[in-house]
């Protein structure tokens, strides 16, 4: 059986990967994937922590399902914005998208 700590470690690693992704990836789509990874790190954490010897806490599952739904909304909006970015900039490179600065 895999202990709780492994799950926690996995979610921490996921979180770090998400951050890394946001900090280094140039492509907008990849950044959105980074956000998704971050969210899923949190979801994994929820599920892992809701598991006790007595069984699963149903509340945490509800939370996660609702959160996935909310997350989907955010990601959808992000993707639609990506489309608009592409229309205006003709590229998805985030480093080209820096007319707003200083």
């Amino acid at each position: 059986m895999i202990g709780l700590n492994w799950y926690l470690a996995a979610s921490a690693i996921l979180y770090s990967i998400g951050l890394y992704c946001l900090a280094t990836k140039r492509n907008l789509i990849k950044m959105i994937i980074g956000v998704e990874i971050l969210l899923n790190a949190a979801h994994l954490n929820f599920i892992a922590l809701s598991t006790t010897t007595a069984g699963l806490d149903p509340l945490a599952r509800t939370y996660v399902i609702v959160s996935i739904g909310v997350g989907a909304g955010v990601i959808a909006l992000a993707l639609s914005l990506t489309l608009l970015v592409y229309r205006h900039y003709r590229t998805l490179d985030v480093r080209k998208m820096r007319r707003l600065k200083w």
Binding site: L19, L22, L28, S67, L81
Partner: peptide, 22 residues
């Protein structure tokens, strides 16, 4: 301009929300 700003806002803010959820 609003598109670029909105996208930046979204990414940063989504990162914040994810951290919050964590």
């Amino acid at each position: 301009e609003p598109v670029e700003a909105g996208f930046k806002y979204l990414i940063m803010s989504a990162f914040g929300s994810a951290t919050l959820l964590y």
